[in-house]
Every structure is written in structure tokens, then in C-alpha cells.
């Protein structure tokens, strides 16, 4: 029962975060929304592990998703800050300045 309520709450939160990611007027709304959506997906997988009855495997998968989602978030933030992912032409070395 508790797991069912938790799952429903997580799915509703995912839907709300998706709406914000689609509508979000600024880039930062979208970054925050997609990050929240990733976190909610990870939590949903962890909860589903207890529903299915195999929590160890599902929590391993959830941890892996957190790590991978972090890469995407870092790339998105870097592009929104610098405009690229570091081309050799535009790179400014600390030694040059």
C-alpha cells in the first residue's frame, strides 16, 4: 500500500517535471526539471525494486543511473555557460593568460 502511494506520487512528480521541462521559459528551468526527472526516475526504480522483490539489483541500477545522469547535467551546464564543450580553437589555457 505504502509502495503504491509512493509510486503514484513519483509518477505524478515526473509528469509535472516533464511539463516544466517542455514549457520552461529559460534554460535553467529545463536543466532543473530534467535533473529532477532523472532523480525521480532513479527513485522510481528503487521503489520498483521493493515492489518486484529484488531490491539489491534494482538499487544497483539506480546508482548507475545517478552517475550517468550527472554526466549529462555537467555537459548541459558547460554548454549553457561557455557556449561549447571546449573546442581546441576557443580553449584558453591558464598558461596563455
Amino acid at each position: 500500500m505504502t509502495l503504491t502511494i509512493t509510486l503514484i506520487a513519483l509518477l505524478v512528480t515526473m509528469a509535472l517535471a516533464l511539463i516544466r521541462a517542455i514549457k520552461g521559459p529559460t534554460v535553467y528551468d529545463r536543466i532543473l526539471a530534467s535533473n529532477a526527472l532523472g532523480t525521480k526516475t532513479v527513485l522510481m526504480i528503487a521503489v520498483l525494486g521493493f515492489v518486484v522483490g529484488d531490491p539489491e539489483l534494482y538499487i544497483d541500477i539506480a546508482l548507475m543511473y545517478v552517475l550517468i545522469g550527472f554526466i549529462g547535467t555537467v555537459a548541459v551546464l558547460k554548454v549553457s555557460e561557455f557556449g561549447n564543450l571546449g573546442q581546441p580553437q576557443s580553449r584558453t589555457d591558464p598558461e596563455d593568460t
Binding site: 550517468i68 549529462g72 555537459a75 554548454v79 564543450l85 573546442q87
Partner: peptide
């Protein structure tokens, strides 16, 4: 989620 997002963002930077 990981690699193809990074590749697409790199292309957008170009």
C-alpha cells in the same frame, strides 16, 4: 543519456 547528449550538445556548440 550520457554520450549522445554530450555529442548533441557539442554539435550545438558548433
Amino acid at each position: 543519456v550520457g554520450i549522445s547528449t554530450v555529442l548533441m550538445l557539442g554539435t550545438i556548440g558548433l
